[in-house]
Design a binder for these strands. Structure first.
Lengths: 225, 225
DNA sequence: ATCGTAGGATTGTTGAACGATTTGACGATA
DNA sequence: TATCGTCAAATCGTTCAACAATCCTACGAT
């Protein structure tokens, strides 16, 4: 029964460490815990009402997700992506997303719609100048692309890359206006896909990555000083 | 100074949890800790002389690497990959490695050599019927391919995929004879690359994945019962 | 201004403790 | 005989307190 299988997910009690990690992840991604900030075990543990041991387990989880960095005997810090990190990030995205996009003709219609729908949303939100939500839709667009590959492992890793990129955006102070340039670009990619011009769509996506990377790295190195 | 930079890596004291995780990782990958086995906190912790808290940190690390699975209030187990896992794994590898291979003409000669050399090694070892080392060289071949992308994040994730695949091999009981069929295949791929026939090489690699996946899934579902 | 050095703060790790959950065996019931 | 509670033992989840190891800072000495 599918209903029972669904309920199972809800039944799985999340461990305290997992819940703490989820809470901290949100705080990091929404910017409340800024990149570079040191997370004191005592302070955070006290504020959240969990023991140091449990908190350290949560830290390990987020360190593995590359949201925190762990320095021996110095503590954990909110990751502060560098220009090199961003280059590495985009090198990975180029391979993953361009490779996934090439599968366009081999996937289900539902998978294809998971690429198209977020672009429509992004366009609509951009017209209302709601750049925050437009940005979220943009991420959904890229999640949809990776989803074409049909691998949860690949999708999970991509989610980590996206999260890390969000941190880089924060360092570069370009939360809102970044997507402005690229929404039409995404729209064009979907058009090419709908016309069956897969190779052109892949090329466009690659160019998008080139431009986005250069832009972000540039702003980052300025901020670095 | 490069010598100083090298020394730095050695200076970084690894935490106890990290060392324990590394030791357990070896034991899992060399088969001493078989897939499906439950890892008692008390037994393992006692044998290794570390406290339960530290051991649990190590477990978290390996769980994140998908070598262990954590079931709430039941403990951690050595992962036992299913047919679906293998399909997911290969879906990811197809995208990552085929996408990386396409970059053949855009990378340094050293990167290309990191693909060729392991194949020569694998061939030499296969001639001596040293299938264990031939298998290791085969992995180096695929690591080399991913390395073409130049992303440590992508390479790290691929290493996790490889490790998980080793577990699947163990469940399928096909440690030694598996690579026998595929060594010549890899040789052919390198030949195509050297001749500049990138697209053909990518196609061959994709076919290799198809065959390997089908083979492995088949043996796995037999073993499942 | 640079270089030790001592002291305080924080992390690394341990061991014990106790509630919560799972497991498996033992009967009771049909 | 098969199924269903019930209960005890084992194990996990989490906290707490303690101490060693390490890092950071401020203070002098040169």
């Amino acid at each position: 029964m599918s209903t029972l299988a669904q309920g199972k997910a809800g039944l799985e009690r999340a461990s305290t460490a997992q819940k703490v990690a989820d809470m901290l992840r949100e705080r990091v991604l929404d910017g409340e815990l800024a990149p570079g900030l040191r997370l004191s075990e005592e302070a955070i543990g006290g504020a959240l009402g969990v023991s140091r041991n449990t908190l350290r387990e949560a830290f390990r989880l987020l360190t593995r997700d590359r949201l925190l960095v762990h320095e021996h005997s110095r503590g954990v810090f909110v990751r502060r992506p560098t220009g090199d990190d961003v280059r590495d990030l985009y090198a990975a995205r180029r391979v993953i997303e361009c490779g996934s996009l090439r599968l366009w003709n081999d996937v289900t219609e539902a998978q294809r719609e998971a690429v198209r729908a977020p672009v429509r949303q992004a366009v609509a939100r951009a017209e209302k100048n709601d750049w925050t939500r437009a940005g979220q839709a943009n991420i959904q667009f890229h999640r949809g692309i990776v989803g074409l590959a049909g691998s949860t492992r690949l999708s999970d890793e991509s989610d980590r890359l996206f999260a890390e990129l969000m941190l880089a955006f924060r360092v570069a102070q370009e939360i809102n206006d970044f997507y402005q340039t690229y929404v039409p670009w995404n729209r064009r990619i979907v058009e090419l896909l709908n016309n069956g011009e897969i190779q052109q769509a892949v090329d466009q996506l690659a160019e998008y990555f080139d431009a986005a990377e250069e832009d972000l790295v540039g702003r980052l190195e300025v901020e670095q000083s």
